[in-house]
């Protein structure tokens, strides 16, 4: 005789099957507003960035997507007259990186950043990658060598530069320089890597290399990328946030957002009616 399965158990299994599997949250942005002087640039943005995925931020120029990105590593603290409201929690741990007493320098050591234009230091390839590690106090040659090689391999640059690690970074091509900047950003094993339109200064071939790299990278790290290129967001991101006039209009799975947007503004933007 077979024991009947208790009814309660059956229903709970069913529930789990129906509920969308919620990914682990890495960065939880809650009611984030940002002011540049008296000018409010972000309005009450709330957004859960999932761990080990690529989250894209899209929207027309001036919508606040780069401003939002730069809130996450407290870059705005470098300039006077800026003010944050709300909270940004980094998991695991859930510390509020905007909270009082939080040192922006500690925040920046957990977030890597790659900028719009490749901006390597006018130093050697090796020293560029090693700089973040040196800041964190690593100074043994053997440790540095190992981590620099690892970062360069992970940014698909090792084979191209292994014979000239001590030459100036500026002798590299634009695409190589940008991959070097990625290596520099990931060398310290940050929790999250922020990309601010990383391919806008690159040709299509260099762009596709960077895109491959970003997709590959999400196995190890959480990625947030600001892009003005909708196709790019579609190609590489798992989730997309659409922003407009400082507000988050819509946030969801990239496929769903592009094929079946919930909000009329999102549909207008992705169908090219404005932007």
């Amino acid at each position: 005789m077979v024991n009947p399965i208790p009814a309660a158990q059956v229903s709970s299994v069913k529930d789990i099957a129906q509920v969308e599997v919620k990914p682990e949250v890495k960065v939880e942005i809650q009611n984030l507003s940002f002011f540049y002087g008296r000018n409010q640039v972000l309005r009450n943005v709330s957004l859960d960035v999932p761990a080990y995925q690529v989250t894209a931020m899209i929207g027309p120029s001036g919508c606040g997507k780069t401003t939002l990105l730069r809130c996450l590593n407290r870059m705005h603290d470098l300039y006077p007259g800026n003010r944050y409201e709300g909270s940004v929690r980094l998991y695991p741990g859930g510390t509020d990186i905007l909270g009082p007493g939080m040192d922006p320098i500690r925040v920046r050591m957990r977030f890597g950043m790659v900028f719009q234009k490749p901006n390597p230091f006018p130093k050697s390839i090796y020293e560029n990658v090693a700089y973040g590690l040196r800041l964190q106090g690593m100074n043994k040659r053997r440790d540095l060598d190992e981590r620099v090689e690892k970062a360069l391999r992970e940014s698909a640059l090792w084979d191209e530069v292994k014979s000239r690690l001590h030459q100036l970074a500026h002798n590299l091509s634009g695409g190589q320089q940008q991959r070097l900047c990625i290596a520099r950003a990931i060398a310290t094993d940050p929790d999250v890597v922020l990309f601010d339109e990383p391919t806008s200064a690159l040709d299509p071939i260099a762009t596709s290399k960077i895109e491959e790299l970003i997709v590959e990278m999400k196995k190890r790290v959480t990625v947030i990328i600001v892009t003005h290129n909708l196709q790019q967001a579609g190609r590489i991101s798992d989730r997309t946030a659409f922003m407009y006039l400082g507000e988050l209009i819509e946030f969801g799975e990239t496929n769903r957002l592009f094929t079946n947007p919930a909000k009329p503004q999102t549909e207008d933007y992705i169908s090219g009616r404005f932007g």
């Binding site: 870059m75 920046r108 900028f115 901006n119 230091f121 700089y131 964190q136 950003a185 310290t188």
Partner: peptide, 20 residues
């Protein structure tokens, strides 16, 4: 952009001045 690159890696102002 060079200053920002250094700051983004966690450099203090003094380190940005002194190293870069």
């Amino acid at each position: 952009s060079i200053r920002e690159a250094a700051f983004a890696l966690g450099a203090t102002r003094w380190q940005a001045v002194w190293h870069h």
